[in-house]
Amino acid sequence: MKDGSASLNDSAQRIVDGMIGDAERLRINVSKGPSGETLIDTGAKAQGGIEAGLRMAEASMGGLGTISAGLDRSLKKWPLTVEVRSSQPAIACLASQYAGWNLSSGKYFAMGSGPARALARVEPLFEKLGYRDAASSAVLVLETAEPPPDAVVQKVAHATGLAADRLTFLYAPTQSLAATVQIVSRVLEVALHKANDLRFPLENIVDGIGASPIPAPHPDFLTAMGRTNDAIIYGGLVQLFVKGTAKDARELAEKLPSLASRDFGEPFARIFERFKGDFYAIDPLLFSPAEVIVTAIETGDTYRAGGRDEMMLERSLG
């Protein structure tokens, strides 16, 4: 851990413990896997809901994010909105929330997000972040309809250096309400990830807040995935507070919005089909909020770029 930083996994474990205590109210199912791991179904066979999704998103940020849902009257058709903020955005978003850990095994596929990543540190991203967690338990979030098979559990146990009975897996399929909320709660994270791709110094991003409409879930996987991506790409709003010169802040604001991508302008589901389901063929610069505000805290200057595209939201969100 960096000096003065609380453990991401310890903070997430407190959120998980609260979810277990509130399981009936949250409409989630808690069970133990064959190796003693804790499994929390927030939207597969369990009903789940908005609150379960918010708690899952908070756990995925290692407790370093504040997440809430509300109604934005300016969005007449999609007023339900998620708001995410963090005063340690690089650690909360990139060391924890980012879905960067491939946990495939046989026919099972899932990308892991959450603070267990900061214990395993198997991704090259951690070399740049310089963050290392230390904890006696670990929490991982999976966007999937099935609990992880034992091979995945053992892979996570080996990488984190923890026994399987010290691991908690929260999971829900993309088509569920809880997962929909959890996914669009990455609106701030995608801005941090793109800032990193643009080689903006992450240590200069000192605070951040983001908001995105929460689309209706859909039973079709491709449609559901398209809606959650489009909610951010065409409807997300992020404000970052940064150190450095006004020029640097202005350039970041100009480059961050999704409209800077070559693939901007189509519903995400259609883009995904055009690239035959290959995420890595899609321009990575597309994964960013529609509108960005960057404030240079040392000069007092604020720059804005991009904008909400209601026509594209109409096409995608239904």
Rank of each mutant, 00 (worst) to 15 (best):
D3M: 12
D3K: 12
D3S: 14
S5R: 06
S5M: 14
S5Y: 11
A6R: 09
D10H: 04
S11D: 11
A12D: 06
Q13I: 07
R14H: 13
D17V: 01
G18H: 01
D22C: 06
L26I: 03
P34M: 02
P34I: 13
T42Q: 00
T42C: 14
A44S: 11
G48P: 04
I50A: 09
A52C: 11
A52Q: 05
A57Y: 04
E58K: 13
A59H: 01
S60P: 01
S60G: 00
M61Y: 15
L64R: 08
G65Q: 06
T66Y: 10
S68R: 11
A69W: 09
L71P: 06
L80P: 02
Q88F: 13
A95P: 07
S96G: 08
G100C: 09
G100S: 03
G112C: 08
A118L: 15
P124Y: 15
E127V: 11
L129Q: 12
D133N: 09
L140H: 08
V141H: 07
V141Q: 00
V141P: 04
L142G: 02
T144S: 15
D150W: 12
V153S: 06
G161W: 08
L162N: 07
L162E: 04
A164H: 13
L167E: 10
Y171N: 02
Y171Q: 10
L177R: 14
T180F: 12
T180D: 13
V184Q: 05
H193C: 00
H193T: 01
L198R: 07
F200H: 02
P201Q: 02
A211G: 04
I214G: 03
P217F: 11
T223Q: 13
N229Q: 13
D230W: 00
A231D: 13
T245C: 00
E254Y: 07
K255L: 10
A260T: 15
D263A: 07
G265Y: 04
G265W: 06
E266H: 03
F268G: 01
F268Y: 13
R270V: 10
E273P: 02
F275Y: 15
K276C: 05
D278I: 12
Y280H: 14
Y280S: 13
I282R: 01
D283M: 07
L286Q: 01
S288W: 04
V292R: 03
I297V: 14
I297Q: 03
I297N: 11
E298D: 15
E298R: 08
A305Q: 08
G307M: 14
S316V: 08
S316W: 08
